[in-house]
Design a protein around this nucleic acid. Structure first.
Lengths: 341, 341
DNA sequence: ATCGTTGTCGGGAACGTTCCCATCACTACG
DNA sequence: CGTAGTGATGGGAACGTTCCCGACAACGAT
């Protein structure tokens, strides 16, 4: 039976050693997960005894001595944004597979809050940081690097730090190309905040696809400056208020797409009858909406694994960025335009 | 300048002591946040020196010595369920206010996974557990109690363990009463899983309101067995397939309500023109849907604070349960029925 | 002046682990 | 048969902190 972890009789490595008739050093060595697993008679016995006694390594003591805690800290804007929850869960799973543990701190999207969040995590003794809050022109990554703190940027990059991202340019291209292939030419873009590299990539992909198709872009078709639902609501209103409104909209984020959907519905417009709509990220809800939404799926698991990998084995020099490939998931929110303009 | 936490020169309590010309004991005492804050000359100087040197207490060492880690573990089914993300964020904030830290583990809704999750957290040295995964007839809480592990149930209760919940019965009553007041009599109920006490409470509140209004309940009006979007999709289809479908639906969870909304829309039914719909939890998205949804707001912050409070100061005996009060948030998804039946 | 009383301070032993190093048995080889 | 090499083992010193306890000063009351 498993012992309780409280005052009376926490079972330590000494107890195991005594019960197995060996020294604590031997027990420590045998139970060290970093060493090759020994199958010797003693090893087997010690493991058995440890299990019987319900021995659990005290991570505080182990961290203190080893100087590493097998814990990584994750910084995200907020967990109530499903995208970030998905990223965190993916990181947590990757950590579990690697015998590590992930803890998280949020910034609530405050520009300077990532410093505080990182500090909290560092104080908690994490071995490294995974940040999803990188902003264009932010010098926090440099500061971390100067302090010698191991870290990796995820989802967004600053172009120089170690990063694990998805190919946002490709994702933007795929989404736009999908609409072009359906016959759309007037395609609106609901953009996110300028400071996020992920946004920039998706916008670039949009431009690339439009250029490639020889479709001119009216600057008025590009609007939006946040990943929030509300921003999508407004942006869609702006777009549909144009003298010649677009026949399709690509929102660089599912949240803004949901906001846009709300506006379109309020305007009495049918999706995809009147306007086609593409989102980005494939958060669970969008496949279950009244009109299941076409979107771009991002391989969060891959991104998380790659981030953790970069964190553990810093590839001095060589490729400082890992790029995962997104996929277009066509659903019911996109169709050919009603009538050619 | 803040020092890096790596090999070269981690600044310890000794360094502070030396720089301030006192002993490490004195520094330790002055920096101990549990003791009343001294304003003596020495105390001031030591704090200043510590700040200048960028001293950060090593939590591993502190935990080892104190036997407590100032960390609480939270177990939730999944973070991609916004309700659970909200709960966790609330707990994290409450912890920050109390000088503690929250770490989380997920169960993916697997019945036995809470044991594994709790084990992981315990191994990580948490002082106590906050569980949101309690199931009717589950003996895991008893097991924890037997092992002497401090824990509190949140959102759901087993009726005997320390718990911090919302008044689900009242919430269910308010939602149903709102529909009754609008003139509805045939009110469908999309229920959640039977094992969740939160679900049971809301269903009871529904029955109470219906009884009070003298509205007979057709057993066929009650359907559903999960908190998922898909369950809502199906349940709404079932309800609307009845010979005399309800004019209003109360879904005990926003996710199922969103699923129901999707079905209603697909059936070409207008909300609230043809059917009124009430959800539960007030997750951010529901106020931004095409039709902003009427729902019941749950005070997650209060629940989290209360849970943490119960965890820290176990009220031996006395009130083992703290109950927070939910609020009805009327929006656009509810209106009077089109024509009295 | 003596004697508690109160308060501040420092020395040093824990806390449970890891890891360096010395010891020992055993094998292989000259 | 002696000795170097190999591999498993145990003793004990760390890791950075807290906390017990004894020393000592300051002060008021006797």
């Amino acid at each position: 039976m498993v012992q309780d972890r409280d005052q009376p009789g926490r079972v330590t490595i000494h107890d195991v050693a005594a019960a197995a008739g060996v020294s604590k050093s031997t027990v420590s060595r045998i139970l060290d997960e970093r060493l090759p697993r020994s199958e010797s008679e003693t090893a087997r016995r010690v493991r058995q005894v440890a299990a019987d006694l319900g021995y659990m390594r005290d991570v505080a003591a182990a961290s203190l001595r080893r100087g590493r805690s097998l814990t990584v800290g994750v910084v995200v804007p907020r967990l109530t944004d499903t995208v970030m929850a998905m990223l965190y869960e993916a990181v947590a799973h990757a950590c579990a597979r690697a015998g590590q543990f992930a803890i998280v701190a949020t910034t609530d999207d405050e520009p300077e809050a990532d410093r505080a969040a990182a500090q909290t995590l560092l104080q908690r003794g994490v071995d490294g940081l995974i940040l999803s809050t990188a902003r264009e022109g932010d010098d926090f990554p440099d500061e971390l690097a100067a302090r010698g703190v191991p870290f990796v940027l995820a989802l967004r990059t600053d172009g120089k730090s170690l990063s694990s991202v998805a190919d946002d340019r490709l994702g933007g291209y795929l989404a736009t190309r999908h609409l072009l292939d359906l016959g759309h030419r007037r395609i609106g873009l609901i953009s996110g905040p300028a400071y996020a590299s992920s946004n920039a990539g998706r916008v670039a992909g949009y431009r690339e696809a439009m250029d490639e198709a020889g479709a001119a872009i009216d600057p008025a078709w590009i609007t939006g400056d946040s990943f929030s639902i509300d921003a999508g609501v407004e942006a869609a209103a702006t777009l549909m208020g144009l003298r010649e409104p677009p026949t399709a909209i690509f929102a660089v984020n599912d949240n803004t797409a949901i906001g846009a959907m709300s506006t379109l519905r309020r305007l009495g417009l049918d999706i995809p009858g009147d306007v086609s709509l593409v989102g980005y990220n494939d958060i669970p809800i969008v496949s279950r909406l009244g009109t299941p939404m076409t979107t771009v799926r991002v391989p969060f698991d891959q991104i998380a694994s790659a981030a953790l990998d970069l964190l553990s084995h810093d590839p001095k020099g060589s490729p400082r960025m890992r790029v995962a490939t997104p996929t277009l998931i066509p659903r019911r929110s996109t169709a050919a335009p009603a009538h050619r303009p």
